[in-house]
Write a protein that binds this DNA or RNA. Sequence first.
RNA 1: CGGGAAGUAGCGUAGGCCGGUAGCGCACCUGGUUUGGGACCAGGGGGUCGCAGGUUCGAAUCCUGUCUUCCCGACCA
Length: 491
Amino acid sequence: MSKEITSRATDYSQWYNDLVLKGGLADYSAVKGCMVIKPYGFALWENMRDNLDRMFKETGHVNAYFPLFIPKSFLSREAAHVEGFAKECAVITHYRLKNDPNGQGVIVDPEAKLEEELIVRPTSETIIWSTYKDWIQSYRDLPLLINQWANVVRWEMRTRLFLRTTEFLWQEGHTAHATAEEAVEETEKMLDVYATFSEEYMAVPVIKGVKTANERFAGAVDTYCIEALMQDGKALQAGTSHFLGQNFAKAFDVKFSNKQNQLEYVWATSWGVSTRLVGALVMAHSDDEGLILPPKIAPMQVVIVPIFKGDDQKAAIDAKVNTIIQELKAAGIRVKYDDNDNNRPGWKFAEYEMKGVPVRMAIGARDLEKNVVEVARRDTKEKMVISLDGVTQYIISLLGEIQQNMFNKAKAYRDEHITEANSWAEFEQLLDEKGGFISAHWDGTVETEIAIKEKTKATIRCIPLNNKKEAGTCILTGKPSEQRVLFARAY
RNA sequence: CGGGAAGUAGCGUAGGCCGGUAGCGCACCUGGUUUGGGACCAGGGGGUCGCAGGUUCGAAUCCUGUCUUCCCGACCA
């Protein structure tokens, strides 16, 4: 069949592409590096977005929206920031087209050149801090806790569906505080929100940590991150939360009067997660038969497939299924009844397995007689025959069990793939033969970090929060080290 | 951006070297039989062969350019 999926063992990259394309999440588009997010994929993103949005609001944040375009000069106000993003910015130079005088089509009107070019935002710190200057005068205006849901553009050389696209959807929180302590607290609080969301909703275990100076966000004092592990043993940065110090306040001259009526620069944070999370979800859980989606964010949690001979049986099944659906919906469960007659049950089973629907119910005349239904769970592929009495309660607890099982399985895999290396030979062997996170001593210098990356393609994913101090020697240079850090090859 | 591969109907592909009416499977439409793990029979529709030039009486096929995708690099909060 045309919908066969490449196995993970054959070609992991192709497996991932197959799942995204054949699972109906996204498609390639006519624009290089940009994808079309299809309804099923967007529904998944919406469920992520809605839960995150609620969590942001519960922690005191409000939403706003800032422009897509940023004056070129803004970007260069913060030196490290422009350094980090300059190489991947789309630039608007003109605002008008005209008919080509020499033939068909249209050309850029050379008379419509902009006085100052506009950058399509790769991130919004600059446009937002230029605005915050007008919003903040007093300590009474702080903290300012704002989030925006937006699209951004980063002109990457090599793109991959969801994991790295030229345009992507994300949220970016931008907060302003009176003290460094409060800003750091905010940075850590939002990292916790991300970790909670990832583990409790996506069922993807993450390691919270801090980036090294070399991996830090352009313009940040400290970058916190959550790191997840994919089934091929590569790490994926799933979210970041930055303590920006006073860098952007100084760049955009944002000061406030404190209680003593002294002017001080404002302290800042920014934090974001993107549609990349969809890629993380796919790669963390799915198998060679297709997607496996966690119940809490699956667009469909339950699909019901009728099995019938003739209209009479169909009518009897419809009647029963309608009462089941009403009960499930009343319990807040997202359920679909697929009574489309174009495809037979076997086709539907395969299709919904590919789409990763957590629970499938199949019901036929035989079941009606016995007052039962066949329930199949996607995560373990087990099938159970369940009494129709109390089936709603059963499904509710089953969805909870699937959610928990998916997390447990991913966590067991992740935990098995955090390995200590105590020598260079061991480090290289682990990278090539086992993958995953490697906990090893590092002498703390950028030079060593880069040297290791050049030799092995492994990077320091993070220094875990609450890392225990432990004297040792750097695996590459043998110089003294005070703690282990986590290395991995990463997306 | 460098190296490699590819683009022919919605999807997967044959044909290309050696130029001469574009074929097959799945999907789709109509009718019928079916329905407990990717149904079957009969009939039918859909293509300027990625796009733009060029060579030629004639181009899917040869030449040039260009766009897009995939794999490996470089790049990447």
